[in-house]
Design a protein around this nucleic acid. Structure first.
Lengths: 160, 160
DNA sequence: TATTGTTATACTCTATAACTATA
DNA sequence: TATAGTTATAGAGTATAACAATA
């Protein structure tokens, strides 16, 4: 049962275009502001790549992490995403409700669930990964391959 | 009248630390994900620099833009921030309520307001700009000056 | 005691839509 | 007709707090 997008769902960030003739003052010297603008652009790439999948960056991240780390707990998933347990729970509910992930009881610890991709989840994720990666590269086409690698390196170094 | 921070206000993003021993799969190859992590780090810098000011990145951006472009309209301000008119209105209400900005009628166009910093707003903004810029640089101290410039250049190129 | 998952609740941000006044 | 501002309303995302089950 495909969920109809409500009038409020599309929620695509507008591209933050520079308004001509305006003075941006100190904003032009702030890494934080430059990061924000670049991130909005890459979010639009993400959105274009996943159109019609009802997916968001946190949801995609969660699926990738579950896929690469089968049996991970909801709490650890929340730690990866930097959100509270209650949020990780709602996110998991969404993945389970979509039939992409299943909760399995852990043999050693009756408190925690282990999360696993379903067959359908694995198939859907493979397609999404390819599409997102391709679009991420396409939107960064204004950079040379060397510049792209250098940007990734500097961002990693900055994020710590 | 200083507004008391409700239990919900602090709302500081957790630093997205990499969980050791976990496989991040394709996320490590995505510019979008690297940008997000770096941006969270720089947001924490912003938060540290503006502690106690009840300020957020959009509010700071708005104040800087009004300061550097006196007489700007709410709609244009919204365009800079990439938000709808209604949101620009609430943002302006906040600045006016804080005594940082005032709305002045325009002589030529009775529809639009012109936004201007108050004397108090100009003083507060000067302090904030200095603090935010210093902290932005401090958090990027893991980069050399040349790397910082190169990162800014690449981000500008990417954001378009 | 500490941790995992869960539920209930609250808040921020932003969107859409309809309206008023002015151009 | 078009634009600026305004108001009302709705939804997504995430937080805190309290609780039960398990460790």
């Amino acid at each position: 049962m495909e969920r109809l997008p409500s009038p409020h769902r599309p929620r695509v960030l507008a591209p933050i275009t520079r308004v001509p003739g305006l003075d941006y003052d100190v904003l032009d010297e702030l890494l934080g502001y430059a990061l924000r603008r670049a991130q909005v652009r890459m979010f639009l790439a993400f959105h274009a790549a996943t159109r019609g999948h009802d997916i968001t960056p946190p949801r995609f991240t969660a699926l990738v992490i579950v896929g690469a780390n089968p049996g991970i707990s909801q709490s650890t998933l929340g730690a990866v995403l930097g959100i509270a347990r209650s949020g990780a729970m709602l996110l998991t509910d969404w993945m389970v409700g979509r039939g992409l992930v299943e909760r399995r009881r852990r043999p050693r610890d009756g408190r925690a669930w282990g999360l696993h991709l379903t067959r359908r989840g694995a198939q859907a994720l493979d397609k999404m990964k390819a599409a997102v990666l391709a679009e991420d590269r396409r939107r960064a086409a204004s950079l040379s391959a060397a510049e792209r690698r250098e940007l990734l390196r500097l961002l990693e170094k900055l994020a710590g």
